[in-house]
Design a protein around this nucleic acid. Sequence first.
DNA 1: TATACTTTGACTATCTTTGACCTTTGTAAA
DNA 2: TTTACAAAGGTCAAAGATAGTCAAAGTATA
Lengths: 154, 154
Amino acid sequence: MSTLADGMEDYLKKLLTLSVSGYIDIKRKELSGKFNCVPSQVNYVLETRFTLEKGYLVESKRGGKGFVRIRKLQASLENLLDVFLQDILSGQISDDRARGLIQRLYDLKYISLRESRLMEATLDSLTIIKDKSLQETLRGWLLKDMLLMLIKFA
Amino acid sequence: MSTLADGMEDYLKKLLTLSVSGYIDIKRKELSGKFNCVPSQVNYVLETRFTLEKGYLVESKRGGKGFVRIRKLQASLENLLDVFLQDILSGQISDDRARGLIQRLYDLKYISLRESRLMEATLDSLTIIKDKSLQETLRGWLLKDMLLMLIKFA
DNA sequence: TATACTTTGACTATCTTTGACCTTTGTAAA
DNA sequence: TTTACAAAGGTCAAAGATAGTCAAAGTATA
């Protein structure tokens, strides 16, 4: 049994795979109507499951002729770098962004599923570090070192 | 006279033997309801009877539609784990020892060359930690979390 | 009796769902 | 053109639903 949010996520992702244009347009109110919930639930799903880190771009317009457009970003090392280069160079990165990067490397087939799990596991370990700043720094280094290794032995 | 905890342990183990998937999902509150005790008693049982040493893996999620998942490791994985458990559970591990374990995993064909390099890369990152004790601790956690992840999705 | 194991409950953390209020945009009326 | 209003979508904080932690109190055992 899954949550409303999970159901809506699956529904939207299915629509996306069926779409030829690479994006879908929805009406927030219609969608919430279909799932019998308040409209803002749609925003919750968008904010937690269709983030830039996860490879989605959400645009919208209010008022008459309003819409919510969800786009699955074409995975390429280029736009990956666009999104994450700043983090990687700065040597610090948040947990969310790190996981997003790993997910997208996997989408790209740049790493295997097992490799992505290994990388994610390293992020789990960091929770034992109390010092938040050290945590972010170490996360950055871990990612950087793992990426460099992958590149070196590609 | 057997304790509440023993009863709960037996109940869960029975459910596990009946499960085809190799794991069971329960609701902490439902279970404690069935045994007429406080919810945290479930945690006590999990912590004392369904530990890694005993060949179990426990995952959970909070919030709406939350759950506790108990997984019984396959015998082959348990054996593999036995080899490393002592090191891993000690909580701290030296760099040499860690690299030895990784090499061993590779020799056993349990991980690929790339995976071994990935794991080694994480050890490299640790050098930025000044605190030697924290370094050793984190090394232990990294290894454990990575291995667990591999086991979980084996 | 001392020690180890068990049980409880108050407090905390996390994830989801809801609803009241806010902002933007298109368009019909003035 | 300007204005008013309806029709979107957005924000945010509170409520709801679970699970986790920890230490104190209770019980069994050596």
